[in-house]
Amino acid sequence: MEEDGSESYTEGESLGGFIVNGLDVYDGGDVSASKDVSDDNVNFDEVLSTIQRSRGLTVKWEFEVDMLAAFGKDLELCMKAICALYRQQTSEEKVSKGTFYSNQRGFSQCDAFRGTTLAEFLTDGDPQGEVKKSVKELQEHDRKGPELCRTLATHHSKQLYAI
C-alpha cells in the first residue's frame, strides 16, 4: 500500500502470456469500495476470476504438472520457455554461455551452453527478446532442436512455474 492509499502491483515474467505471476489488478479505481464487504462474504476465487476476465488475464495452470502436460502438447510454448529462461541469465552468463551464479535463475550449468545457443537462435540474438522463429524454422535449423526445447523446459519446470 502506497502513502496515498493506492495499491501497486507488478506483473511477473510471462511465457508469451500463458502465465501470469502476481496480480497486476489495481486499475486506479476506488480501493475503499471493497471495505464495506466483510471478509466472511468475500469469495476470492470469484473476485480474482472477475478481475482477470475484465483485464483479459488468464491463469493457465493451477499446478506445475498442468504446465508440464502443456509442454508435451505445445512446442511453441517450450520455445517461449527457453526464451524466458534465457532472460533470467545474467549478461555475463549470456556472453559466456555458461552459469556463474547459483541463483536458481536461468539455465543450469550443464544446460547453459546448449540453452543459450538455442535461445540466441530463437530470439535472433536479442538478449531480452521473445521468440522470433517458428517451429518450422527451428526444425530446419536443428532437427533435434524441438526435442531439446522440450527437454530443457521440462528440466527447468520448477523455475518456469515460479516465473
Rank of each mutant, 00 (worst) to 15 (best):
S157Q: 05
E130D: 14
K97C: 09
G5H: 02
G56A: 13
E140D: 15
Q52C: 08
Q88Y: 00
V131E: 06
E2K: 05
E3S: 13
S91I: 11
S102Y: 15
D40H: 14
L138R: 00
L15Y: 09
G28V: 01
T117D: 07
Q104C: 04
T154D: 02
S49E: 10
D4R: 03
A162F: 13
E2R: 06
T117M: 12
I163D: 05
K97S: 10
E3G: 08
Q104H: 12
Y86A: 03
F107P: 01
N21T: 15
K60A: 13
E130Q: 11
H155A: 14
T117L: 09
T151C: 09
Y161M: 13
R53F: 12
G28F: 12
H155R: 15
T58Y: 10
D39H: 01
G145I: 00
F121G: 01
L75Y: 04
G72H: 10
Q88M: 08
E13R: 04
D142T: 00
A69Q: 12
K60N: 10
V42K: 14
L15N: 06
E7A: 07
V65L: 08
Y161K: 13
L148E: 07
D124E: 12
Q159A: 07
K133L: 06
D40N: 15
G129L: 02
D126C: 03
F113N: 05
V59P: 02
G129H: 05
V95M: 06
D66Y: 11
M1E: 07
S14V: 15
K94A: 05
S34T: 15
F71V: 02
E11R: 14
T117E: 09
A153I: 03
G22V: 11
G17A: 05
D124T: 01
M79H: 02
K97I: 01
E11S: 13
G29N: 11
Q104F: 05
V131F: 04
L118G: 08
E76Q: 08
T154Q: 11
E120V: 02
G129K: 03
T154P: 04
E137A: 11
S8W: 11
M1H: 06
R53V: 04
D27E: 13
A112H: 00
D36R: 11
A119T: 08
G106M: 03
E120G: 03
E92I: 09
K144G: 04
V47Q: 14
E64T: 01
S32P: 02
V37Y: 11
E92Q: 08
Y26F: 13
D27H: 02
T151F: 07
L68T: 03
A33D: 13
D142P: 00
N21Q: 15
I82W: 00
T154K: 14
L15H: 12
D40Q: 15
E62V: 06
V47G: 06
Q52G: 01
M79K: 05
G22Q: 10
S134D: 07
T50A: 09
F121P: 02
P127L: 08
G16S: 06
V95W: 02
